[in-house]
Simulated scan of single mutants.
Amino acid sequence: MSAAAVGLSARIVVAREHFAVDVEVRVASGETVAVMGPSGAGKSTLLQALAGFVPLDEGEIAVEGQVVDRVAAPRVRTEPMQRGIVLLGQNPRLFPHLSVRENVAFGPRAAGVPVTDARRGADDWIARVGLPGAGDRRPHELSGGEAQRVAVARALAAAPRVVLLDEPLVALDPETAGDIRRMLRDQLDGVTTVAVTHDAADAVALADRLIVLEAGRVTQEGAVREVLAAPASGFVASIAGVNRIEGVSAGGGWRKGELVLSSTESASRALAAHDGVPLTAIFRPQDVQIIRSGEWGPGDGWRARIIRLEPTLAGIRVHTDLCQIDVALADTAGLVAGEVVRLRIDPAGVRFVSPSQR
């Protein structure tokens, strides 16, 4: 990627109480990159540092090739308002004493745009985010979703070089979040964006690439669907909605201790020449069948102990010491925590992923 094609390039090092956030980020001009990770992994710290609200302990931040923050000599420290970076969070933080129009016009007016032009541009942005005619309303008259739309309009009206999103949809109901997600996808097209989210739907809908952050370090990155299809950690497996168990290749299949899995015939042939190679088995919870005690025969399935039963919209998720299983409510009668069962899965439902594929 040439320097001219890089919208954001950064090495962020910020010491925290239990670990240091140490992340390299490189975003092409006009690209959207999603960042996901467990609570406390350092995602918000990353955005705050990029925006200039948290000082770097080490590292450098460059926007479209221009260094805006550098710890090493020659020291550079650009104030947040001068970076061309805007941060949009869960709270719209609209100015309560200003109308919607004046909220959106604030950035351009602060940059020296004449009042009439700034207000005209604000009305255009208000319409673009789906609120035509709302310019005279006050923030207290807006719903949560409308306020978030205005916040997006205010951010983009300032013509930022980089937009940072810190879970802006998390406080919205699912229907409103879906509407705002579609609006964001349209309005952020061509804008260099880093979007922190906890929802895989946001990452798939908004982003070109996904960075996974765990305990302050990048543990996986790549095209969104490719990362979710080959999770390198339990966290990624959980957001992708799949089971992930590490083992080794063995006899054309996969083994972890006494647990043995096979895959399709073609996959097994491909694996046969690589016994003992680290290999991760990936399969969906709904593809696993529970065999109750008294119903299994010798060598039938894998032995597992139920840890807990969790109600879901579709039925029950059964958590065992091996994996998770989704079953219909009618099929869980009599299942209890602590019960020993056996599990079975069709080989067609198993994928094997080697470390080189992640």
Rank of each mutant, 00 (worst) to 15 (best):
S2M: 13
A4G: 15
L8V: 09
E17C: 05
E17Q: 13
V21T: 06
E31I: 05
V35F: 06
M36F: 09
M36S: 12
G37I: 03
S39F: 02
S39D: 08
L56W: 03
D57Q: 08
E60G: 08
A62Y: 05
Q66S: 15
V67N: 07
E79Y: 10
E79K: 11
G84P: 01
G84R: 00
I85W: 02
V86M: 02
L87Y: 02
E102M: 07
A105N: 14
R109E: 14
P114D: 13
D117L: 11
D117W: 08
A127G: 14
G130R: 04
P132A: 03
D136H: 08
E141W: 07
V163C: 09
P168N: 03
V170F: 08
L172H: 12
L172Y: 09
L188Y: 14
V191E: 01
H198E: 09
D202I: 13
V204D: 12
A207C: 14
D208Q: 15
L210M: 12
V218D: 04
Q220H: 09
Q220C: 07
G222A: 04
L228G: 00
A232G: 09
V242S: 05
V242C: 11
V248D: 00
A250Y: 07
G252L: 11
G257L: 00
L259S: 10
L261I: 11
S262D: 02
T264K: 10
A270C: 03
G276I: 03
V277L: 06
L279C: 09
A281H: 00
P285M: 07
D287E: 09
R292V: 05
G294Y: 05
W296S: 15
G301Q: 08
W302Q: 12
W302D: 09
R308K: 11
D321W: 05
Q324H: 07
I325C: 03
A330R: 10
A330F: 01
T332I: 01
I345H: 01
P347F: 00
G349D: 04
V350R: 02
R351P: 04
S354A: 11
